[in-house]
Amino acid sequence: MRILLLAAVAVLVAGCQTEVAGQATPTGFVVKDGTLLRFRPVLAALPAGPPSGPAAERQSADPATQRAAAQALDCAADRPDPLDGRDDPALPLVGCDRADGTKYVLGPGFLSGADVSRVAAHPDPATGGSVIDLSFTAEGARTWAEWTGQNVGKQVAMVLKSRVLTAPVVQSAITGGETQIAGKFTLAEARQLARDIAGG
């Protein structure tokens, strides 16, 4: 599925509610722990496939080591991740999307969950699908605008505890602190992704 990252062009649909700690709120999810979520640039993506070769260091700056780590990585959904959130955000990371098995080589983190103020999911009447809205803090919005302006057409991974949740393509520079993730999501899928981005 090709997922797009767009400047937000719509507000929450009236009556759309999600749950936060057992309570319904019309404004979405608040990030629970800003240290768990990291935004990392996608340097390379490898298609899903069984692991091959010996395990390699997943946080190396050496491209050959990164490729070997990606090939050896087991992305099976039922396999625990040995890093499980203990990755160093200042170093590259080899990780995977456990939903579709794609393996990613990611650059150092440039934003964290502390830079996100709120995440919400709602139907998109224009497409008939659903979208996820992210609202950034003032500082996060400045960093996001600068990064997206320099990386149009590239992917950015949202990583929770070393696991890639989504890796949308940046469609344009995103200013103003509001961002929308669009793809072929059902409302249930969009809400689950919003919940995961907020920290589960």
Rank of each mutant, 00 (worst) to 15 (best):
S162Y: 11
R191K: 11
V131Y: 00
F29R: 13
A70Q: 13
R58W: 05
E178N: 12
G200A: 06
K161D: 14
A68N: 09
A69C: 08
Q171V: 07
I174H: 10
P82H: 15
P168F: 02
D100V: 10
D74T: 03
I197T: 03
R118W: 03
D100E: 05
C75H: 06
E189V: 04
Q71P: 00
G183K: 09
V131W: 01
V156L: 03
A188N: 12
G177K: 06
P54Q: 10
A190N: 11
L43Y: 01
D74L: 02
A198E: 05
Q180I: 10
G128Y: 11
S117H: 03
Q180R: 15
G107F: 07
L134H: 00
L5F: 08
Q17S: 11
G149A: 13
L83S: 01
V159D: 05
L6C: 09
R58P: 13
L43G: 02
L6A: 01
K32L: 14
L46K: 10
V13N: 10
K103N: 03
R67Q: 10
A126L: 07
R38Y: 01
G28M: 13
T175P: 02
R38C: 07
G15T: 14
R195N: 15
S60D: 05
A198D: 04
R191G: 09
D100W: 07
A145K: 05
D87S: 09
T186V: 02
V42C: 00
A72N: 11
A120Y: 08
V152C: 07
G85Y: 06
E57I: 04
P108A: 01
V170A: 06
A44E: 13
L36F: 06
Q171L: 04
L4P: 10
A21Y: 03
G177P: 04
A7H: 12
G153W: 04
Q180D: 07
A138I: 10
V31H: 05
L165F: 09
P123H: 12
A114K: 11
V152Y: 08
A45F: 04
V156C: 02
D88F: 00
G113E: 04
A55C: 00
D88H: 01
A61W: 03
T127M: 12
A90I: 02
L36S: 07
A114H: 12
A138R: 14
W144P: 02
G85I: 09
L36W: 05
V116Q: 07
L193Y: 00
D100A: 04
T143N: 03
G140H: 13
A145R: 04
L111C: 01
D88I: 06
D124G: 09
T127E: 11
A8Q: 12
A190Y: 09
T143G: 01
L160Q: 08
A8T: 08
G200W: 02
L46R: 11
N151G: 01
G129W: 08
V169D: 02
A194F: 09
R98F: 12
A194S: 11
D115P: 07
I197E: 02
G176W: 03
G49L: 07
